[in-house]
C-alpha cells in the first residue's frame, strides 16, 4: 500500500572530524508523518539537513552514504533539484525581510526567476496561505513586509513558502520551539492538514507533539538511529533501553 519515498543507506555526517550521524538506515514511506526525537546534540538536525543537502553548506561539513529520494541518490543529484523536491522549515521563522508577505509566499518562484501569470501567482499565494490557515489573517496586508508578522504567523508564512513550491517531502526542524502555545497548536493542526498530501519529517523535543502528529517516530541517540517504529508502539512499548530511558525522562 505504501511506497518508500526517502531512504537512507549507511548515511554518515561529519563536521570536520566530528562524526555526528552514524550509519543511519531508515525507510520513510510516502505520505506519512515522521517524528524525529532524541536528546540535544544527537544529530537530529544534522540528519534532517542531510536529506535535502543543506548539511554541506556548512564549511567543513561532509557526508558519506546514500540518501535516496524515490530511489534516486540525492548525493548524485544537483542540490537545486533536491531542494525543489524537499522543502524545509526551520526552527526560527526566517521570512525574507526585504519581501512583502505576498512575495514571500511566491519567493520560490520569484527568486528562482520562474515567471508566472499574475492570476496564477495570486492563486498560489491564496491557496498556500489558506493551507497554512494564514489567509484570513493577512489577506488585507499582503503588501506589508513579512517581518511585521508575529512569530507564529511568520512561521506559518515560512511553511506556506515551502508548500507553495509543492515539494514531495517537507522537513521541519523544531518548527514550534520558538512559538507560543497558541501558535504551536495552530501549526500542529496544520500538520494534520498537510500530512494528507505530503511526507512530513518533523524534528521535535516535545513528546506530546510527536504523539499527536506523527505516524512513526525515529529515535536518535549519539548520532545513531536507535529505533524507528509506529509512534504508538514507540511510546507504549519501546524495544531499546535507551528509548525507554528517554521516554520516561531518565536522560537529562
Amino acid at each position: 500500500m505504501e511506497s518508500t519515498i526517502v531512504k537512507s543507506v549507511n548515511y554518515n555526517a561529519y563536521f570536520g572530524d566530528n562524526h555526528v550521524v552514524k550509519d543511519v538506515n531508515i525507510e520513510i514511506p510516502r505520505n506519512t508523518t515522521i517524528a524525529v526525537m532524541g536528546p540535544s546534540g544527537c544529530g537530529k538536525t544534522t540528519f534532517l539537513r542531510g536529506i535535502n543537502r543543506m548539511h554541506e553548506l556548512i564549511p567543513g561539513a561532509t557526508a558519506k552514504g546514500q540518501i535516496l529520494l524515490n530511489g534516486e541518490d540525492v548525493m548524485e543529484m544537483h542540490p537545486i533539484f533536491v531542494r525543489l523536491k524537499i522543502g524545509m522549515v526551520f526552527q526560527r521563522p526566517n521570512p525574507f525581510p526585504n519581501l512583502s508577505i505576498y512575495d514571500n509566499v511566491i519567493a520560490g518562484y520569484k527568486l528562482n526567476g520562474i515567471k508566472l501569470p499574475k492570476a496564477e501567482r495570486d492563486n498560489i499565494v491564496q491557496h498556500s496561505l489558506t493551507r497554512v490557515a494564514l489567509w484570513n489573517e493577512v489577506k488585507d496586508s499582503l503588501t506589508k513586509k513579512g517581518s511585521f508578522l508575529s512569530g507564529g504567523q511568520q512561521q506559518r508564512l515560512c511553511i506556506a513558502r515551502a508548500v507553495a513550491m509543492e515539494p514531495e517531502v517537507l522537513l521541519f526542524d523544531e518548527p514550534t520551539s520558538a512559538l507560543d502555545p497558541i501558535s504551536t497548536s495552530t501549526v500542529e493542526e496544520l500538520f494534520h492538514e498537510l500530512k494528507k498530501n505530503y511526507t512530513l519529517i518533523i524534528v521535535t523535543h516535545n513528546m506530546q507533539q510527536a504523539a499527536r502528529v506523527s505516524d512513526r517516530t525515529a529515535f536518535f541517540y549519539m548520532g545513531e538511529l536507535v529505533e524507528f517504529d509506529d509512534t504508538k508502539t514507540m511510546f507504549t512499548n519501546p524495544k531499546d533501553i535507551r528509548t525507554q530511558n528517554y521516554i520516561t525522562g531518565r536522560f537529562s
Binding site: I80, R83, M88, F90, F96, P97, G108, L111, N112
Partner: peptide, 24 residues
C-alpha cells in the same frame, strides 16, 4: 538563516546572493 531560507527553496547560488543577500 537568510541564506538557508533561500537555499532551502532550491535557489542556485547566484540567485541566493543577487536576489536575497545583496538586496537585504
Amino acid at each position: 538563516s537568510l541564506r538557508e531560507a533561500a537555499y532551502a527553496l532550491g535557489m542556485p547560488f547566484h540567485r541566493v546572493i543577487l536576489k536575497v543577500i545583496v538586496p537585504c
